[in-house]
Amino acid sequence: MQLGKNQRNMLTAVGFLSPNIIGFMLFTAIPVVQSLIISLYDWPTFGERKFIGLQNYIDLFTKDPLFPKVMGNTSIYVFCYVALNIVLALAMALWLTNIQRGEKLYRSVFFLPQVTPIVATGMIWKWLFLPKYGIINNFLGIFGVPDINWLGTTGTAMSAIIIMSVWQGFGYNMIIFIAGLYAIPESQIEAARIDGAGKWQVFIKIKFPLISPSIFFAIVMTVISSFQVFDQTMIMTAGGPANATNTLVLYLYNNAFTYLKMGYAAAMAWVLFAIIMIFTLLQMRLQKDFVTYE
């Protein structure tokens, strides 16, 4: 049988794409569908499985006393982390694109935490936050601030996690913003300056609108990743003290691998998916008003 040109092209395309398709099917598509099925079962890690319909979802919202707490913690983390990350990354990007010397060095230094294993940095930050011997308390002590039990007090544990996360994560957005800032035509900035615009006006009227697609991208990606916060809370506090840093993915992990409740954990994963999807759609909708594509 002679294949037509289009068919041959399609076959070639499928051939080239197949390694990726196989990987996607095996490690993403099939597990995603499986997790949806599992979420409808009372599915202990091993032992007898029972179909229970939407009961896992109902229990999550009506019976689980920890779920509201975990959702609250995650929301606080997402809000504070995203805001601080974006502001700091933008500020550093503006600074680095304006200094005369050392830009590449600083850029590398600020990006370094992003490529350092988070387990290692988490351990180091645990020591930095130690009440008596930690360098942070020692530094604050110079100004007369009494010892703070950063990771051992419910009021400060989440702040400590957010501080560490911002330090670890802002470098990525900073690089995106730097790229955005360099893409702005110098002529537009010069024209604004000739017209008498100051630094602040140049930033607000020229730079900010022109890098708004980069900011939008950074916010969307940071919101998505921050809803999935896990490593920091797992390593630094294990969700404590008193569940003050217990976040959605950590709770999901514990349900799946410590409490062996796979069905319940899968339902939690789908709730997380729904939350992220809603937030992303909302941002997509809002971008029409705030993002300039010119």
């Binding site: 990771l151 051992g152 506090t237 294990a238 003290p241």
Partner: peptide, 8 residues
């Protein structure tokens, strides 16, 4: 001592 490392 008061606990300072709840994850451990």
């Amino acid at each position: 001592p008061r606990i300072s490392d709840t994850g451990n």
